[in-house]
Write a protein that binds this DNA or RNA. Structure first.
Lengths: 231, 231
DNA sequence: ACCTGAACACCGTTCAAGT
DNA sequence: ACCTGAACACCGTTCAAGT
């Protein structure tokens, strides 16, 4: 894999640099994306990425403090290119649609879910990447929530969403190939009667994508709880 | 799929084995727990655990197929020793209390959260470790949910819970030492007005443990949605 | 100034051998 | 039968050099 380093970036049309320019931040992020799309995101490592670019692994540390920072930059870089959905005016629907968009993005970019499943991630993202947070908070505000209620609404929706995404992507990664296990049977009908009765159907129920329904129920209820406490 | 063979176990008080017994499954799990409590769970590795026990790393593969299986066994081993909370009769409260217990357990055992954040984890746990799943489903059933509604209720609560736990423990791990970042200021009041207005308070709001409130709101609403669709 | 190889300190897992 | 060291195929990160 001794790729020669990619020559000039897409420099406008003006003068050439005398010697091959250093690998740019953009080139690195594009290469990372390529690597992820080709080999899967769990294959993205500093060393592999460097090899892909034909540079030394250590050189990457001139552009990013550590791997986590690379992931954050990658997310910022690609989130702005994402198509923003048309958002309805009605506050409740606005929140739901923004959350669904956020969810879809995370399902498509499991690496982003890992980078961002940490409190305070909002402080790490570029402003242009924060539009879905903004929209959800704005929806809550428009509905009549206090600032604190709006933040707590966002956090609740966020935990539900990131939990669903992390479980889903890990489920897919584990049991690649192997079939998903069902219950160890027979279950003890005396100790866990409900689960014993359900055991045959659990798998089928769990295969249903119930995220959107749960989201709507949750958002509705969080908004209702806010206005209840206001009165 | 070489099932781990059962080792000697703790021989009662009867005859000694001639030579030191092989390391038993129980000894391994206790040592793992010790290691986690002493050095933190991210320090638990097959190699370290083997070193702790004074045996070769490869020997552990006689007891566990892989590291994930070790984590599952560890969870099964310790969850049965957990004190089960007194659960109220009333279905709604029963669900909430069981979920809170589940949440507290996961907060205390972050390694368990990692092992269990995968669909189908219920199939991996011992029956005695499934009591909180059973109780939540039983509560939903007692309330009048259909089997499918009960499973979806559990899943929704589960995603919310595991999301909160994973974010919380990762937040703690990252920013050990360093202080948690606040927003990069000043935020653009034109593009993200809500966040700009909130930026000073976000950190304080996010520091509040809002999980129990969110949980109650969610459970209430999920139950209400079930009975609404039944009529 | 910019980039590097070599090294450090680890991983999980496999497998041909030893006792 | 049970256990092992050595090896494989990797990691992220640091740092004293090189050009």
């Amino acid at each position: 894999m001794s790729r020669p380093r990619a020559a000039t970036g897409r420099s406008g049309g003006s003068g050439r640099t005398g010697r091959p320019p250093v690998t740019s931040r953009t080139e690195i992020l594009e290469a990372a994306r390529l690597l992820i799309d080709r080999d899967g995101w769990e294959k993205l490592s500093i060393r592999r990425l460097a090899a892909e670019l034909g540079i030394g692994a250590t050189t990457l540390y001139h552009h990013f403090g550590d791997k986590e920072e690379l992931l954050i930059q990658l997310l910022n870089h690609h989130i702005v290119q994402m198509e923003r959905p048309e958002l309805p005016q009605e506050p409740r629907e606005r929140i739901v649609v923004a959350a669904l968009a956020m969810h879809d993005m995370l399902i498509g970019w499991p690496w982003a879910a890992e980078a961002v499943s940490v409190d305070g991630f909002v402080a790490l993202l570029d402003e242009s990447a924060l539009w879905f947070v903004e929209e959800i908070v704005a929806g809550a505000d428009a509905y009549g929530c206090t600032p604190e209620q709006s933040v707590q609404l966002f956090r609740s929706v966020w935990y539900y969403t990131i939990g669903e995404v992390l479980v889903r992507t890990r489920t897919a990664r584990r049991w690649e190939g192997r079939e998903r296990p069902t219950f160890r049977d027979p279950l003890d009908t005396a100790r866990i009667p409900q689960l014993a009765a359900l055991s045959g159907n659990w798998g089928a129920f769990a295969a249903v994508d119930h995220y959107p329904q749960g989201l709507r129920v949750f958002v509705d209820a969080l908004l209702a709880a806010s206005s209840a406490s206001a009165s």
